[in-house]
Design a protein around this nucleic acid. Sequence first.
DNA 1: CCACATCGGGAAAGCGCTTTCCCAAAACGT
DNA 2: ACGTTTTGGGAAAGCGCTTTCCCGATGTGG
Lengths: 363, 363
Amino acid sequence: MPTTAADGSAPGPGGPTPRPAGPVTLQQVADLAGVSPATASRALHGSTGSRVVGEQLREKVLAAARELRYVSNAPAQALARSTTSLVGVVVHDVADPYFAAISAGAMGVAREHGLLVMLAATFRSPELELDYLARLRAQRARAVILSGSGFADRSYTSRLAAEVESYRADGGHVVTIGPHGIDTDSVNPANRAGAALAVRHLHGLGHRRFGVVSGPRSLTGVRDRLDGARRQLRSLDIALPPANIVDGGFARDEARGATRALFSRAPDVTAVVVLNDVMAAGVLAALRDDLGLRVPEQVSVVGFDDLPFAADLHPALTTVRLPLTEIGAQAMEMILTGPTIAPRAVAVDGELVVRGSTAHVRR
Amino acid sequence: MPTTAADGSAPGPGGPTPRPAGPVTLQQVADLAGVSPATASRALHGSTGSRVVGEQLREKVLAAARELRYVSNAPAQALARSTTSLVGVVVHDVADPYFAAISAGAMGVAREHGLLVMLAATFRSPELELDYLARLRAQRARAVILSGSGFADRSYTSRLAAEVESYRADGGHVVTIGPHGIDTDSVNPANRAGAALAVRHLHGLGHRRFGVVSGPRSLTGVRDRLDGARRQLRSLDIALPPANIVDGGFARDEARGATRALFSRAPDVTAVVVLNDVMAAGVLAALRDDLGLRVPEQVSVVGFDDLPFAADLHPALTTVRLPLTEIGAQAMEMILTGPTIAPRAVAVDGELVVRGSTAHVRR
DNA sequence: CCACATCGGGAAAGCGCTTTCCCAAAACGT
DNA sequence: ACGTTTTGGGAAAGCGCTTTCCCGATGTGG
C-alpha cells in the first residue's frame, strides 16, 4: 500500500484520503511529500521563473497534494505575492438583460484567462457603486469594470474620481463602459449616434411627430441617448416638445405607464423612440393593450440595445443593436493588456435592425 | 493647518491627500495617528469583542485612515482572521434570464449582509463547475451556491461529492438549487410537479396529442421536468411516443429547429409543453413563422419558469411560474444561517400562469 | 492606605504562503 | 587535477493584518 498512513479520523486501513481536519496547508503537503514548504510551493505553482523542481520530488509533491485534496489558500497567496486573480464587474442590475449580456461577455474572457470575477450590483445607487469600488479595492482586485453608465452628479463624479485614483495608486486598473466623466480606459457604445440612427429611420418613413420614452436623466448614458435623438431631430427641423419626453424608469411596467401619459398629452404622436428595449416591451404593451393603437400601422416604435427578446416582441422590435457581449469582452480584454500610459477609448457602433415595429406613417 | 505634512509627490501645501505610493498599510495609518498597529486595527474594525479604543485615539485613527484613503488589505485580513466575506455563486450561464433572476435574488440578500459575491459561469460544463468549486474553495469563500442543476453522470457526481466534502471539511458551506445528487442544503423548485401542472392544464383543455420540447437530458433538472410530464401523461392514459420528444438545447434558436422537427414527425400534435421559457420563445417563432400554425387556435404551448419576457411573447405565454428571485434569495439566506446538523431542503412550488398561448383543442 | 480588579494601550506571535538567500552536490572548463 | 559554474533544495524573512498576552495607569472595596 503506497499511501502513507498519516493521521486518522477514519482509522480504517482502506480510506484513500486520511484528510486532517480543517484546511490542508502547504506545510502538510510538504511533510507528506518529505520536502520543504519552499519546494512544495515551487512544485505546485512553479511560477518562480527559472527555478525548476526535480521530476522526482515534483511528482511526490503533486501526489501528496492530490491525496490531501489540497488547494492553496488564495488569500495567503495574495498576501505573499501581492497580486490576485480577481477582477470586479459592477453593474446596475444583474437581472437586466443588458447587463447580463455585458457580464457574459466579460466572464467568458475572464474564464479563458483564469480570472475569477466578483460581480456587484448597485441597483443604480451611486453610493453603492462607490462602496463596492472600495471593497473591490480592499480585495486587491486586479481590475474593475464599471459597466453601468455614470451618474450626472458633480459630487458623485469627484468622489468616484478620487476613489479611482486611489485604486490606481494601489496598482488597480479600471475600465468603464459608457460615459463616466472620469479619465480611464473605456469602451463607449454609440449612444448619441445610435439614437440619431433611430430618428433618421423614422424620419425617413415620413414621421414628423415624435415622442421619446426616456430613462432616468441622472444617468449619463440616458442623457447621451436623449441628446442624440434631440440633436438629430433639431437638425431635421422637427420639434420635440418637452411634454413628448417621458421617463420610463428603465423598467418595462414603468414605461408602460409612461407611454399612456405620453399619449394622453400628445395623442398625435406617430413615432416613438424608446431609449432601451426593456422599456420598449412596456411601450408595445401599452400601445396594444392600453391604448388600442396598432403598431406599426398607427404608431411606429424603435428601441435600443437589441436584447435577445427584441425579435420575439409583438410586433418584432425595430431597434438599434449594440454588440453587448462583445462590449463586455472588450472591456475585459483591456484589463488583460493592462493599463497603458494614456487611457484608451474604444468606440462601439450601433446598428439599426429593422423589424416589424416601424412602418410608413399613415396618420 | 491641521493635516500633517507627511511625504509628497505633490509638494504643494494645499493637497489634502499626501498619499504615499502603493497601497496604504495599516502601519502607515497607525504611524500617522501616532498609535500602534494594534490600536489602529481595533479602532477600524473593532471586532475584538470587549476591547474598546478610547474615543480620542479612535477619532485620530479614523481621521488618519480617511486622509490616506486607507482600505484594509482583505487578503491579509482573511489570512489573519481565517474567514472572508466572499460567497460564490455558480451558474450555467449569466446571460440566461433564469440564472440572472436567481443571481439577482442571491445578490440582493448578499448585499444586505455585506457579502461580496463571486459569480462563476460554467457554460454547462461539469468540468468547469468542479474547477470553479475548487477555486472558490481556494479563495476561502464562506459558502457557495450551486445554482445550475446537476449533471446526470456518475463520475461527475462522485467527484462533486468529494469536492464538496473537502470544502465542507475546510469549513465551507454549499447550497444547491435543484437536484444535484449530493447531500447538502438545497432549495428545490417543483420541477416534476410543475411539468405535471402544465400537462393537466392542457389535458383539461381537451388536448390529447402531446409533444415535448426538452433540454439536454444530461441535466438532472431537465430530467425531472421531463419525468414529471411523462408521469402525468401516463396517469392520464395519454401516450407520449419518443418521437414526440425533441431536444431544444436550452436555446431559443435550437428549440425553433427542434420544433420543426417535432411537427414533421408528428404533425397531429396539438399541445406542446416546453421545458423552459427561452425555448418556448423559439417554439412560438417556429410555429408562427416556419410552420404557419396558429397559437393557440391550432396548437397550444406552455412554457416553464415564467421569465420576465413571457408575457411579451406573441401570444403571451402560458407557463409555470417559478419564483426565481426568491429562490436565489432563499439560497443565500440558508448561507447566512450557516450549516445545520442535517441538510435542509426547502421545496418551492410552481404555479401555472395562464395567458394566451393555450386554448381548447379545435383540431 | 493597600490589595485588587479594570481599562486601554503596545509588543509580538502568528495566519499560510512566496521568494530571497545560502549551500551542498553535480556538472563543466582548461 | 582543480577551480568554476550550474542545479536543486532548504532556511528564513517577510506580506499586512489580528489577537493573545503583558503592563502601566486608573479606579474600587475593605
